[in-house]
């Protein structure tokens, strides 16, 4: 895909929109000999929730992990191309990967709270980054994060209970609170609801909608209804390429590419 298609998406931008938060240009990823991502370019905006859809193994998660350099942690993984956050190359030597990950937070497929108390789970990020000046400050950050993730009312009386004792949906919202607590600019979500039941999923989706605008949100999902519900922009990946990227409404009602159409109508995937 294609730079011009990005431009198409770009041209639709109206005057009130902010410049793209992240831009990716011609990104390639190799796992050893396997060419997992083949020249993907894309802009990610603060104003939208962006959904990545596509069949399993299409590279949507891999590309997502490029955006906060989590792929660095995988042996034999090589990333090429340019990815920028606010116009700064995230692979530049001056970019500290640890700070990048604080600014580009991540929520994983399976809820993975630390086996510590709820409070400690949320407070961990602010602590290591020194975001709170005092204990009261930290308490405040924890409360705000839990409120924003819609978990506060459920856990406020048992903040010292273990994070792993919560239900699956609560755990995932705790993970979102944990990501929010370091005040990131972008939140990457890798199929955040795939391990949850429908009610918990609905809560997560509501939450994503509430968080929109404050953070640039990118969500990987294999559930097309979910993509349609929560996102404003959708990117369709197939076999490591970005096939189509545009407004969610357009993608689902009037896809430009036949592969996109086949996928969303359930021909494969």
């Amino acid at each position: 895909m294609s730079v011009d298609m990005v431009n198409v998406a770009g041209r639709e931008a109206d005057a009130g929109r902010r410049p793209p938060k992240m831009t990716a240009r011609d990104v390639h990823v190799w796992y050893g000999e396997t060419h997992a991502i083949k020249g993907v370019s894309m802009d990610i905006s603060m104003d939208d929730v962006t959904a990545f859809i596509g069949p399993s193994g299409c590279g949507k998660s891999t590309f997502l992990r490029c955006l906060n350099r989590m792929n660095d942690t995988i042996d034999g993984c090589r990333v090429e191309g340019r990815i920028e956050l606010d116009g700064h190359d995230i692979h530049a030597p001056s970019m500290d990967v640890v700070q990048l990950r604080a600014r580009v937070g991540m929520v994983f497929q399976k809820p993975n709270p630390f086996p510590k108390s709820i409070y400690e789970n949320v407070a961990y990020g602010p602590r290591i980054h020194g975001l709170a000046r005092s204990r009261a400050d930290l308490d405040n950050v924890v409360e705000q994060s839990l409120r924003r993730s819609g978990l506060w009312d459920e856990v406020k009386d048992r903040l010292s209970a273990s994070g792993t004792a919560l239900s699956g949906g609560q755990q995932q919202r705790l993970c979102i609170a944990r990501a929010i607590a370091v005040d990131p600019e972008v939140i990457l979500m890798d199929e955040p609801a795939s391990a949850l039941d429908p009610i918990a999923t609905a809560k997560i989706e509501e939450l994503i909608d509430e968080l929109r605008g404050r953070y640039a949100i990118v969500i990987v999902t294999h559930n097309m209804q979910q993509a349609a519900r929560v996102s404003q922009k959708t990117a369709f990946f197939h076999l490591g390429s970005l096939v189509e990227y545009g407004n969610t409404r357009d993608i689902f009602t009037n896809p430009r590419e036949v592969r996109t159409k086949d996928y969303i109508t359930g021909r494969y995937g």
């Binding site: 500290d96 700070q99 290591i128 980054h129 020194g130 975001l131 005040d183």
Partner: peptide
């Protein structure tokens, strides 16, 4: 200030 990235490392 405490914002991430302004002061690189913790005290």
């Amino acid at each position: 200030g405490t914002r991430v990235g302004v002061v690189h490392s913790r005290p």
